[in-house]
Design a protein around this nucleic acid. Structure first.
Lengths: 349, 349
DNA sequence: GTTAGCACTCCGGGAAAAGGAGTGCTAAAT
DNA sequence: ATTTAGCACTCCTTTTCCCGGAGTGCTAAC
């Protein structure tokens, strides 16, 4: 059977309507939205065909039609109108992006929140380190006789620091030497190798020094492990409750706790496409089989990519989500990808 | 009318039962739990009295009784058994606390998660700065000709740092001098005064230097404003869905989105008590009128207190929550309050 | 003060009935 | 060959009604 233009037109009407109302659509309602004159009986024939072909489904014998995953897929690939954002929308997104963000860490964690409130669905974010992070530079700053600040600059240009105190006296004069030691032995290597190097040093340096070095290296190792860990953050899970498909508290609870407790299993993009849409059963994970996910990634320089995913019912408003999400991703890429690792210079306020 | 011992005993049974089952309790069921022999008719008389006195309520004429907020209040103040934790429970809590936590920031944000998973209710956390934060020390570290690291140590011992790049050349040799300038002019003062001081400097120092200083001071100011902002974090909101009182999706949604969008209005402790319980209508906020909140605070040194609140239905298991929460708060205080501002030294793993 | 007995209330669940939206099919029209 | 009108039929949804049970409040006796 052939997928005529008219069939596509009808399919699009059904999907658009179902996305909006979450109600099955019948032949009469379709006629009203069709251009030209056509009878409901004709539409019914077309609907029967579309159902045979697998693009539509019938909740029960005498109900209207709703889109099947296959129907959504066709809709997303061919039928849906690529929306462009209105001036107000781009303006609003720009405004939310222009707020103060102290560093990339914050960008990543905030991006999810911002996207979630803009698209009206829950989101999740991941910082994707293309290559394993290493320490680019150590620096020790003396504070007083018992404590010092360890500053660690990572290969992805993040800088982390922490006050450290030791029970033994920290001789300020030696800190530059110790920094140098750290930089020569522990810069540019992975967390795993650090421990080995540390062992080697254990009998080469003074015991007190070793304790201090050990402490700093442990801290650095922790940072590296953290960044390899690809922590996932979720935002706005409660937005799910707005949708009738999650009026069933158990369904809502299942998905929400999946998003919280099983974050690691949320999908990540498989190809290189800037945006990816996974519809219902296309998701490998059971908990997502009745939901859809839209994933976009953005560049934040230094071999890092941010990833933000939008989760919603299969009846998600793909056109709007895709438009907003891609604008977001592009804006973020523009802000961070270009001027490598620099925070945005904000003029306003 | 007088509140006899027997009335209290009955009240306690009703509250205990209702907390467990969420079902109204009738006179027969009460008799089964009463020691000694007593008839259901007698219990009914007592129930009628307790209802008159406002400690119990009747969902409808021919249903059993449920506790009123006043009943919960009495229960919490006098009746409930102060539970002590089992060895397994303290062990589990200790284990969760012993994990790596890189700094106080992380402690605060993790505490909420840990408590939430331990008590089985959603939580929120606030970092409460007793006194306004200031910068204790600035330090600039040269990286290359165009960039440097700004390290800012705050009065609460947090250390923050960020890589900064400027369009103008950063002369490494001048950084110590600039650090000194920052420390003499901007240490120990609030964010507001910083701007004034900056103005004064604008014509005293070289233009390029000023740009650099400006950048660092702006960063520091942002950090100070952030810490004054008392950001609230919420955790585990989805746990609400477990409770029958939130099977009504709208109620769940109301409370959940309140916890997310109106975080700032979540209650903070009013007195000095280590723990505070707000029951139903005792909450000023409408969204919480049918829920209860248990708040505890813990000491994390340097004039800072962490605050963690547990949110649940009025039928919350106060005894267990209070026991676990106070153990948590005490443990955290012990870890951080004592050895001022130091991260826990973890031996294991 | 306590208890047995009893009439009464009201909720909750299940069955039956009514209503309605929508379909599929047939046969006629284009 | 496609489109259309007509109609019987299906099945969901809502409403109504009925019944059983849990629990109460009251009265009268202990």
């Amino acid at each position: 059977m052939e997928l005529t233009e008219r069939k596509k037109q009808i399919l699009k009407i059904v999907v658009d309507s179902y996305i909006e109302t979450a109600e099955p659509m019948g032949s009469k309602a379709i006629v009203e939205r069709m251009p030209g004159k056509i009878s409901s009986a004709t539409v019914r024939n077309e609907l029967a065909d579309l159902t045979d072909m697998g693009y539509l489904e019938q909740p029960h014998t005498s109900a209207g039609r709703i889109p099947s995953p296959k129907g959504y897929r066709l809709y997303v690939n061919e039928l849906m109108e690529r929306k462009s954002l209105s001036a107000e929308e781009t303006e609003a997104i720009n405004r939310s992006l222009s707020g103060k963000m102290a560093g990339m860490d914050e960008v990543i964690s905030r991006a999810g929140q911002m996207v979630s409130s803009f698209v009206g669905y829950p989101t999740y974010t991941v910082a994707d380190h293309r290559s394993a992070a290493t320490v680019r530079r150590f620096e020790l700053i003396g504070v007083d006789s018992g404590s010092f600040i360890a500053v660690v600059m990572l290969s992805d240009s993040r800088v982390k620091s922490q006050l450290m105190a030791l029970d033994l006296p920290v001789e300020q004069g030696h800190l530059p030497e110790l920094s140098h030691l750290l930089n020569t032995h522990f810069a540019g290597i992975g967390a795993a190798e650090m421990n080995a190097h540390l062992m080697n040093l254990s009998d080469q340096v003074d015991g007190n020094w070793f304790l201090l070095l050990n402490r700093v290296v442990e801290y650095a190792g922790e940072l590296l492990r953290q960044s390899e860990q690809q922590e996932v953050f979720t935002n706005g899970a409660s937005q799910l409750l707005k949708f009738p498909e999650y009026r069933d508290v158990d369904k809502a609870h299942d998905l929400m706790s999946f998003m919280v407790d099983n974050k690691e299993n949320l999908p990540v993009p498989s190809g290189d496409a800037p945006m990816q849409i996974l519809i219902g059963p296309e998701n490998v994970n059971d908990a997502l089989k009745e939901s859809s996910v839209v994933i976009a990634s953005y560049d934040i320089g230094d071999n890092m990519r941010g990833l933000v995913g939008v989760v919603g019912p299969t009846r998600m408003d793909y056109a709007t989500v895709a438009a907003r999400l891609s604008y977001f991703a592009e804006s973020l890429s523009a802000m961070f990808g270009k001027k490598n690792q620099l925070p945005p210079k904000e003029e306003e306020e």
